[in-house]
Design a protein around this nucleic acid. Structure first.
Lengths: 231, 231
DNA sequence: GAACTAATACTCGATTTCGAGTAATCGAGA
DNA sequence: TCTCGATTACTCGAAATCGAGTATTAGTTC
């Protein structure tokens, strides 16, 4: 899958909007908002206009008219081209059919979890859970409302997916907190010991592994598996 | 939470690495790789060097020595500063404690799901499921291996989180496919009818809502709720 | 009808991001 | 000892990204 000429997901939304009818950029932005698509695709004015320009440059859309309304800046109305329709279909197929690696900030944070003490980690994760619970409630309320309006679910599956993801995140985080609290996370007791040793001896965390018996009271068998330069 | 001076997650990883000991940029990159942190934080050489420069400019790290090794480019070794340690701790706390809105590509795709026929959608989602299954198997194998090496789980929680997310995605996708297939997704039958009408009458999708009785055989009560300009 | 707020419709330029390219050296095998 | 692929260690510039700022008009309230 060669790289897209215009890769910003907002460009995808622009193509999607223009495949309904010609519009000017600001109109696209308001339509995305009224339809709530800006909840699933990040909308930023700066990006919108540069993305529209890039789409035009690549022949996916074309200016069909410019209207001037009093002294306001003139609006350029764009229409999708045949190439643009192809690009949109191809892009949608890719988005749905081929999952692409995405990086979440929690993943980044967890990668450095041992940099905090277990207690501090639990405190922060609990805080996260609270925020996520609120998020879930907001989503559920919105869904209940749309359902009661008989608004077809097909128009808000993306929000249901978001809900599923947040639920998974909360479930994981709760389990993690419990595991840290109970030390059942293998290595968590070790994590505690390490932190206490750092405080007690006033050493750097990296020094812990130079004398495991002193600081952990035992050999660490897995330590031998790690090449020295990665310790 | 004011914006970070250096916002790229890779900068966070750089601070995390340098809080262990001074290193030169390339050394950071290899350490991230051997520890598998590059699976959770996107590593790109171009970004690495510009991020290091930005961190230095902002006083979070400082060059401590430059070594030259034969005719190779000279390596600048950087150390973290006190401000850098604070920044790292603050950043980690934010990553763990305050979930930030993230946009996934599947969400973007689902937002335009009705642009494809139900059959095509199912076909693509099935394809996605296949890829996700393979991904899950890879992760599970890797985890089993680390567990059998007694490598403490605390060092790979981020990968467990990733697994939880992929599992949630697959569960959701499977449910969605089933719902589309069985038409139990309210609005899915309507989606089918709409698509058939577009083919039968050769009209634009947007025209469907101009005469719902003709194309869907009934009034669509929720349609009245939508402001005309958002239709 | 003056004042003010909200909505409309962008613009701009400072960063950021990216990934392909480069160039030296090392090590293993022929 | 020659070669060649892998590893080391970056560089560069084109393109993307962002969000704050601007200017006009429409609507609302006193």
């Amino acid at each position: 899958m060669a790289k897209r000429k215009v890769a910003n997901p907002l460009a995808f939304a622009v193509l999607g909007s223009l495949s309904e009818r010609p519009m000017h950029p600001y109109e696209i932005s308001t339509m995305l908002k009224t339809r709530g698509k800006d909840m699933s695709i990040k909308l930023n004015y700066g990006s919108l206009y540069s993305v529209v320009a890039a789409l035009e440059k690549n022949g996916f859309i074309e200016a069909v008219e410019t209207v001037r309304d009093g002294n306001r800046p003139e609006k350029t109305v764009y229409a999708i081209t045949a190439a643009g329709r192809d690009e949109f279909a191809d892009w949608l197929a890719e988005l749905l059919g081929s999952p692409e690696r995405e990086y979440s900030q929690l993943e980044a944070g967890l990668a450095y979890l041992p940099a905090f003490s277990p207690d501090r980690a639990v405190e922060l994760l609990d805080q996260r859970i609270e925020t996520l619970v609120a998020e879930i409630e907001k989503l559920e309320t919105a869904h209940a409302e749309m359902a009661s309006n008989k608004f077809p679910r097909i128009f808000w599956v993306e929000s249901e997916f978001r809900l599923a993801l947040v639920r998974a995140e909360i479930t994981f985080t709760r389990q993690l907190v419990r595991a840290i609290r109970t030390d059942e996370l293998e290595g968590s007791a070790f994590w505690r010991k390490g932190f206490e040793a750092v405080e007690k001896y006033g050493i750097q965390p990296a020094d812990l592994f130079k004398d495991p018996v002193k600081y952990f009271g035992e050999e660490l068998p897995w330590l031998q598996e790690i090449p020295p330069e990665a310790r």
